[in-house]
Design a protein around this nucleic acid. Structure first.
Lengths: 216, 216
DNA sequence: GTCTATACCCGGATAGAC
DNA sequence: GTCTATCCGGGTATAGAC
């Protein structure tokens, strides 16, 4: 968050240009979308020549990869944080603790997408050659993993059933995220609350009706 | 599908260049994504000067709008076709006819996304100024409308409940569509079948567990 | 580690001829 | 309705100086 400068006439001489580029990329993408980002634009905003960033990134794609990795880290962190907070201990209520954890994941996911639009876009919409950037191969796995344990509990350790439940839950969550991002729930933070709540409820609905997931 | 030419040395002189541009745009987008499309590239493929398309479209965006409209038409047609086919009459089985129709919608939606990648991308990912192109305002409404009637039946005409059910179903369906498009279910047509089936099952699950959607 | 300068390509868009 | 010709802006990327 702090802008690193060496106070040398406002230039980034020896400052952490790499991080600065990434931060700027986030802002640009938030404003103009993925295709609106360019190293040229970022350089301009940072008061730096277009050539400078090439000391830190081989090309444009490498910036996006770095952002994607940052996105995976922060998203999984957000999910784990959300599930770790342990709201009500669920005192043997009508919904199981596992279901609550899944709903928490959904909330965290949607909230992350809404409050980290750029990173989420990079993670989801960037058409990076996943075979070339192996670091991104398991991005999906890493996110899905957080959902898996509670799902296994709910499905009595039936791996196949849990897998399908996870997919259904992530699909749904992803759908709510997409909706909140393109304004289906309106503007402002009310929209985020609406989306997170409804996403969590949808997860509960999926859990309740999960018997239907095994159909042929 | 037929390429309209006047057989005048392979040129489009007096041919239906407008349609040809749209068809070409679909192909280009399928190969290189939304941002990979340009009037220049389309012109090149059609053996026409870059200036020619401007007789038919004011600018690049107008092409995308035309594609989006085509997308809405075909998608709603696909949904209505899917629901109209009336598979098994549901002979008072365990799932209601309304639920079957919703599942059919989901199937149609996912299948459309998979088999009309470009049109779907334009419809969902194009950042067109919806306030400038009023024709697109009600695109979402038109799609959602197909889901609404069956949902109302299921919810005993409770409009608010039906609305939330529709949103949940569309979110889920959209999620499966996104997944099949970025290869989560693998390549080939098997993936499409998997995705459509699971999407339909998820809809059944949501319907079964819909009591949870009303939570605070 | 950054700057200057530069070469290159591509897309958008228009004027005027045919 | 299309072509020729042209202008403009913008992005990528590199070489070489400091």
């Amino acid at each position: 968050m702090t802008v690193p400068k060496t106070s040398d006439r406002g230039r980034y001489h020896h400052g952490d240009l790499k991080e600065a580029v990434l931060d700027t990329a986030v802002k640009v993408i938030a404003e103009h979308g993925l295709s609106g980002f360019s190293l040229a634009e970022a350089s301009r905003r940072l008061g730096v020549t277009v050539a400078a960033p090439y000391r830190h990134f081989a090309d444009r794609d490498e910036v996006l990869v770095a952002l994607a990795l940052r996105a995976v880290d922060r998203l999984s962190a957000a999910l784990e944080a959300e599930t770790g907070e342990a709201g009500e201990p669920a005192e043997a209520g009508e919904t199981s603790a596992a279901a609550e954890r899944l709903a928490d994941c959904a909330r965290g996911y949607v909230r992350f997408a809404a409050t980290n639009r750029s990173l989420y876009l990079v993670l989801l919409n960037s058409t990076l050659d996943k075979s070339r950037y192996t670091e991104l191969q398991d991005a999906g796995q890493r996110i899905g993993g957080v959902f898996l344990q509670p799902a296994l509990e709910l499905c009595d350790q039936d791996a196949a059933a849990a897998q399908q439940l996870v997919i259904a839950i992530i699909a749904t969550t992803q759908g709510y995220a997409a909706m909140v991002l393109d304004g289906t729930f309106g503007p402002g933070s009310d929209a985020v609350d609406t989306a997170t709540t409804q996403a969590a409820n949808a997860v509960f609905a999926l859990v309740r009706g999960r018997a239907a997931l095994g159909r042929p």
